[in-house]
C-alpha cells in the first residue's frame, strides 16, 4: 500500500488560517499518530483527507481511488437503530457470527441489540470505531477514537483495533501521549 503524501496544504475559515503550508507523509499500511495542541487543524486535515472539506491550496497524493473510513469526533450513530444495525449499514457483507465476534472483541456483546440512543458514551464510541474498522475502507481516519474510554477499556480496544486494521493505512489524531505506543504508531506532529 502506497504512502499518503500531503503537499503544502493550507486552509482558512473566514480568513483565519487553520492549516498553513502543511506537508506530511503517512506511511502506507501503518498506523500514524498525528499529535498537536488543540486548534492546530488536526480535524481539518482529516476532513480534507476524507474529502469533506476542500483545501484552499496544496494537494494530497496516494488517496486516489481509495475508500476512506472515518471515526469522527462525534459518534454519528443513527440513534433509532441498534448498535448492530449501525455497523451492518456500512458492512452488509459480514455474517452475524463475524459481527458477534467483532463486538465481543470490543467488549460490546451486551450492547449489540441496544438502540444507539440508549448506549453509554463509551459504548457508542466503540460502536463508531467498530463501524469504521469493519468497513471496506482502505484508509482509516480516526479522530480521537479513544475519547471517553477508561484506561483498561482503552487498552483492550486498542488491541482489537490493531487486529481489525489488517495492515490498512490508519491516521489517528490524539492528545494523549500514551496512545501512539498502544497502537504501535509512528508519531507525526503538525
Amino acid at each position: 500500500m502506497s504512502d499518503i503524501v500531503v503537499h503544502s496544504l493550507s486552509k482558512a475559515y473566514d480568513g483565519k488560517p487553520v492549516l498553513q503550508n502543511v506537508s506530511l507523509r503517512f506511511p502506507g499500511g501503518r498506523v500514524s499518530c498525528l499529535m498537536a495542541p488543540s486548534g492546530t487543524g488536526k480535524t481539518t486535515l482529516l476532513r480534507i483527507l476524507a474529502g469533506l472539506t476542500p483545501a484552499d491550496s496544496g494537494s494530497v497524493e496516494g488517496l486516489e481511488a481509495l475508500q476512506v473510513g472515518m471515526v469522527f469526533q462525534e459518534n454519528r450513530l443513527l440513534p433509532q437503530f441498534s448498535a448492530l444495525d449501525n455497523v451492518r449499514l456500512v458492512c452488509p457483507h459480514l455474517s452475524r457470527s463475524a459481527l458477534t465476534e467483532a463486538f465481543a472483541a470490543m467488549g460490546l456483546t451486551d450492547a449489540m441489540d441496544k438502540k444507539a440512543r440508549d448506549l453509554s458514551g463509551g459504548m457508542a464510541r466503540r460502536v463508531a470505531l467498530l463501524r469504521a474498522l469493519l468497513s471496506d475502507a482502505d484508509v482509516l481516519l480516526l479522530d480521537e477514537p479513544f475519547g471517553g474510554l477508561d484506561k483498561k477499556t482503552r487498552k483492550a480496544v486498542a488491541k482489537a483495533c490493531k487486529d481489525l486494521l489488517r495492515g490498512r493505512t490508519c491516521i489517528l489524531v490524539t492528545h494523549d501521549p500514551k496512545e501512539p505506543a498502544l497502537m504501535d504508531a509512528k508519531v507525526l506532529t503538525l
Binding site: L52, Q67, M70, R76, V90
Partner: peptide, 20 residues
C-alpha cells in the same frame, strides 16, 4: 453530521434515503 457520515462511508442513495 449524519449526512457527512453517509458520504464518507459511501452509502448508496437508497440507503441514505431509507436509513438516514
Amino acid at each position: 453530521q449524519l449526512t457527512e457520515m453517509a458520504a464518507v462511508f459511501r452509502l448508496s442513495a437508497w440507503k441514505r434515503f431509507r436509513y438516514v
